[in-house]
Design a protein around this nucleic acid. Sequence first.
DNA 1: ATATACTCTACTATGTTAATAGAGTTTATA
DNA 2: TATAAACTCTATTAACATAGTAGAGTATAT
Lengths: 146, 146
Amino acid sequence: MKITFRGDYALKAVLDLALHYGDELVTIHDMAQRIDAPVKFLEQILLDLKKGGFIESRRGKVGGFLLSKPPYNVTVGDVVRFIDGSIEPIACVKDKYVSCKDVYKCVFRKIWQDVYEATSNVIDNVTFGQLAIKAGAAEHALEYSI
Amino acid sequence: MKITFRGDYALKAVLDLALHYGDELVTIHDMAQRIDAPVKFLEQILLDLKKGGFIESRRGKVGGFLLSKPPYNVTVGDVVRFIDGSIEPIACVKDKYVSCKDVYKCVFRKIWQDVYEATSNVIDNVTFGQLAIKAGAAEHALEYSI
DNA sequence: ATATACTCTACTATGTTAATAGAGTTTATA
DNA sequence: TATAAACTCTATTAACATAGTAGAGTATAT
Ligand code: FES
Ligand code: FES
């Protein structure tokens, strides 16, 4: 698994929305400043997250974004898989290409599966609800950084 | 962690040498055929592995490559880290760039560390000695594939 | 009306990856 | 000693992915 800037920003964006869950809407501009991301780049990412059903938006004046689901129902794994794609260390079979002559005999296959499972085990068991609480202390100081 | 073709070939190359450990030398040409890699690409990779101290070579006629160390003293992690670089899911600090305003407050930091440790735990605990035994059955049939 | 904020598509600069190419060096052996 | 076999080294390249940038368009509260 390799997290790109895109994925990194996406995670921070969802966390930012989790921290404002139930509150007022969050604008791209405000969010970009807090998570230190280029506005136009963040724009694209938020649109993606919307297509993925993670967030919703309201247009026009007083518009902004909000989380579609309660923060406890969204995991880090959900976002990473959606934005950065497969978390497998190697794509043994993609399209018509196969990395090994015989995938079934491949002695490395189990290793990559083990890595995959170990990774999943971490990222699929952390929700943004949990992360929001962790970030909470700094947030209550009214100047949290992500 | 993302395994590139380079890393994939390197692992197969080391396994191939592990399967011939103690035997005669292995030529690039022969190895390339067995592991299904482009000869000139494999050439570069073997030279890298040599610089990394994983393998040795003999030049001239009847030349070839051999493992520097017993297969049980080399892990998959050793090769992956050397050829494909850091196995971390994200480089939080590289050069002067820092991905988060405050790395110490970052709530994602622990997640990436957990992924790192889980991954290490898998790849650092598999030696080429173990892999060679697994591949052994097919090898003894004189037509093993990697 | 108009300012504010989301929406959509296209473009670009940079870097990485996966090779390919070719000239050079070493060594066994006929 | 000529030669073939095999490693050594450097340069180049095509394709792709990443990390943005740019700009025109749409919706909506006031
Ligand atoms: S089948 Fe994927 S590395 Fe062998
Ligand atoms: S410090 Fe690395 S993601 Fe925050």
